[in-house]
């Protein structure tokens, strides 16, 4: 099973926010999407779920293909796109948004939200809708289940977000800047979590500013700049990147590391 997005174009009025973006997510691999702020990373990610609203008039043209053996699902080609995205959102692709605290229902306890997610995924019919194992899986105490989102620290909220995404049991996971604002040990913990998900066969799309992540766990690298993909290559040898923008980003990362 794999996800292929081809020639994505998002227009706001006559201005193209994203143009000619293509990417592939494969099971058991981490595709890293890197780019400056405002380069269209999040929009690209949301277009995989058909959730690009709030942009007026928000014209989206894309060829999204989700291939499962012989079966090919093309939600953007469907007449009723909303309906065509129903099997995609959740069962196939889950999304961990940039600000995980805002992504949690502010007036519902964390445990209840995980339980809802488990019920939704249907993989635990009957007995096993307990949120505790999922909290432990992301190294949170069982008692966190009783807390409300405003009582969580940033790192806890991030890990609850990951627990929710894992509990949903999706085949692919889009993770939007998961390590922003976290200290190194938490960061390492979350990366560990993502690796574990990859090793269990989940395909990941990781969105970040941080090229160092690519070295640590990337399989494939995409660099976006002003709505276009400027670099599309395996994540092994980053110094050989072709485009000026990607090189600039890479040099900046090296300078930062040298200073640290």
């Amino acid at each position: 099973m794999s996800v292929h997005l081809r020639s994505l174009r998002i227009l706001a009025g006559k201005r193209a926010l994203v143009s000619q973006v293509s990417l592939h997510i494969l099971p058991g691999q981490i595709t890293v999407l890197v780019g400056a702020s405002g380069s269209g990373k999040t929009l690209t990610a949301r277009s995989l779920l058909g959730l690009v609203h709030g942009i007026e008039p928000g014209i989206v043209a894309a060829d999204l293909e989700i291939q499962d053996g012989e079966v090919i699902h093309r939600p953007y080609a469907a007449v009723d796109r909303e309906r065509a995205f129903v099997p995609v959102r959740g069962p196939l692709i889950a999304w961990l948004p940039q600000n995980p605290r805002a992504a949690l229902d502010p007036l519902q306890a964390v445990g209840a939200q995980i339980r809802d997610c488990l019920k939704l995924s249907g993989q635990n019919t009957g007995l096993d809708v307990a949120p505790e194992p999922w909290l432990e899986r992301v190294s949170l105490a069982k008692s966190v289940g009783r807390l409300y989102p405003h009582q969580l620290s940033g790192g806890m909220a991030q890990r609850v977000g990951i627990a929710l995404a894992l509990a949903r049991g999706s085949r692919f996971l889009i993770v939007d800047e998961p390590t922003t604002g976290l200290d190194p040990s938490l960061r390492a913990g979350i990366l560990e979590e993502l690796k574990r998900a990859r090793d269990s066969g989940v395909g990941l799309l990781l969105i970040t500013h941080d090229l160092r992540l690519v070295r640590q766990l990337g399989d494939h690298l995409l660099v976006m700049d002003r709505g276009c993909i400027v670099e599309d290559r395996p994540a092994q040898d980053l110094s050989a990147m072709q485009s000026a923008q990607a090189q600039a980003l890479w040099q900046a990362t090296l300078r930062l590391e040298a200073r640290q």
Binding site: L49, L51, R89, G90, W95, P97, A103, L104
Partner: peptide, 11 residues
């Protein structure tokens, strides 16, 4: 965010 996240989870 949480409404969008809910939609992304398939609610």
């Amino acid at each position: 965010g949480f409404v969008l996240a809910g939609q992304a989870h398939g609610l």
